[in-house]
Amino acid sequence: MNALFGKKKAAVSTTTSKAIIGLGALVTGIGRVVGGRVGDGITGFGLAHVVLGTLDMFRPSVRTR
């Protein structure tokens, strides 16, 4: 049962990572539309989410006993 639970957890992690990447892309687009210094800050915030979501997707999952 633990092996099955571990596989489920990995799938959820991938789904969460993809959601964070998508949200980051959306926020980046909003930041580009806003423009100016505020838009630059929003764009950077969105790009940070894209990078962190991508890194999280490739991180090895934690195995439980």
Rank of each mutant, 00 (worst) to 15 (best):
A48W: 04
L52Q: 12
G6K: 12
S13H: 11
R59N: 04
A11S: 14
V51Y: 03
T64W: 00
G41S: 06
R63D: 05
V62Q: 10
L4I: 10
K18T: 04
F58G: 06
K9S: 15
F5M: 15
G22L: 15
I20M: 15
D40I: 01
M57E: 08
T28I: 01
G41I: 03
I42Q: 04
K8C: 12
F5A: 15
V38W: 02
A48T: 08
L4E: 12
N2F: 03
G22R: 11
S17D: 07
H49T: 04
S61C: 02
V38L: 14
G31T: 00
A3G: 09
S13T: 12
T64C: 03
G24P: 13
L26I: 14
G35W: 02
T14N: 13
G22P: 13
F45M: 14
A19M: 12
K18V: 06
G22W: 05
V33M: 06
V12G: 08
K8W: 02
L23D: 07
G46K: 05
D40T: 05
G46P: 10
T15K: 05
I42F: 02
P60D: 04
S13E: 14
V12P: 07
D56V: 01
S61P: 03
I21Q: 15
H49N: 15
P60R: 04
T16A: 11
V62H: 03
N2W: 02
T15C: 11
G31W: 00
M57V: 01
G46W: 02
I42C: 09
R65D: 04
M1I: 05
T16L: 09
V50S: 09
T64Q: 06
V50D: 09
F58V: 03
K8T: 09
T16W: 00
A11V: 09
V33E: 08
V34G: 04
G22D: 14
A3K: 11
T28R: 02
V33Q: 09
G31S: 02
A11P: 00
D40V: 02
L23C: 15
G53N: 07
A10S: 13
A10M: 15
G53Q: 06
F45S: 14
S13I: 10
L52R: 05
M57Q: 06
G6M: 15
G53V: 03
R65Q: 01
V38N: 12
G46M: 12
L23A: 15
F45Q: 11
G41D: 07
T15I: 05
G46R: 03
G39W: 00
A10K: 13
I20Q: 14
R65P: 00
L47V: 13
V33F: 02
T54F: 04
G53L: 10
G31K: 01
M57G: 09
V50N: 08
S17E: 05
L23T: 14
H49P: 00
A10F: 06
A48G: 12
V27D: 07
T54K: 03
A25P: 01
K8M: 14
S61D: 07
R63G: 04
V27K: 05
G35E: 13
